[in-house]
């Protein structure tokens, strides 16, 4: 399972948000790091088919996105930066609705994610309205929802933004474990350096281009810097830092 982009570009008017992006992302936990405006969300929107690339193509598990949208969407789970859970519905109703959109019955859906709900401590909250949940729990619901159809690729766009330290830690660790247990390809976009560990696959994106890609520790060694923060500073000089 892999995500491959080939000379992928996207323009807002005349401004390039993503430019000639050549990227290969394999299974495991992959971090996409970049400052605000680096092109992370635009890349996500193209990977999920919400934006049409201006040029280039995307292949997921060998399927070209333009010709195999349905196949690709079946194998993809997404957690967007902006919360997309329906506040007026319960946790269960949100999950069942998403499962229905994937063409899955409610019973099958709940069976699929029984363990995940339990690991995310959501089993007792299935009948609660999402409006009554805190930010951390809402994010957990979105993660559970993204896994309901057993995807092979999981995309998370700044999934921990706005959460407290404990919730961030819990969610980051859970997704890392999940990528190992299920053997899926996870692309985790963030601008928070403390979410990256030395063994993670790291891609640094800036001004719509890939600056580096590789294992964090090795990248630091190659660039002769002490840590990811310094690497990031070096590669995104003159750009806002979060």
């Amino acid at each position: 399972m892999s995500i491959v982009t080939n000379e992928l570009s996207f323009y807002y008017g005349k401004k390039a948000a993503v430019y000639d992006l050549n990227l290969t992302i394999n299974k495991g936990f992959n971090v996409l790091l970049g400052p605000n405006g680096a092109g992370k969300s635009t890349l996500f929107s193209m990977l999920t088919g919400l934006y049409q690339p201006s040029s280039g193509n995307i292949k997921i598990d060998g399927y070209d996105f333009r010709d195999n949208r349905a196949e690709i969407m079946k194998s993809m789970g997404v957690v967007f930066q902006q919360s997309t859970v329906d506040l007026d519905l319960s946790v269960k109703q949100n999950l069942v609705y998403y499962a229905a959109l994937q063409g899955i019955s409610s019973s099958e859906a709940l069976t699929n994610i029984g363990d995940i709900l339990s690991q995310l401590k959501l089993t007792q909250r299935l009948n609660d309205k999402v409006r009554s949940l805190n930010g951390g729990h809402r994010r957990r619901v979105e993660i559970a929802r993204a896994l309901i159809h057993k995807p092979k690729v999981l995309l998370l766009d700044e999934a921990t933004v706005g959460l407290d330290i404990d919730s961030r830690k819990m969610i980051t660790e859970y997704v890392k474990t999940l990528s190992q247990q299920l053997g899926i390809c996870v692309l985790w976009a963030t601008h928070l350096i403390d979410e990256i560990s030395a063994d993670d696959q790291l891609i640094i994106l800036n001004e719509g281009k890939v600056k580096v890609q590789g294992i964090s520790r090795e990248l630091c060694e190659t660039h002769n810097v002490a840590d990811i923060y310094q690497l990031y500073r070096m590669l995104t000089a003159n750009t806002e830092i979060t």
Binding site: T48, R69, A70, M76, Q82, T84, D86, Y98, Q102, G103
Partner: peptide, 18 residues
């Protein structure tokens, strides 16, 4: 505007059907 449209569009089924 709020982003929930994205959830609908994550369906593998054709958009005209949705």
């Amino acid at each position: 505007e709020m982003g929930s449209m994205k959830v609908l569009l994550m369906s593998p089924l054709p958009r005209p059907f949705l």
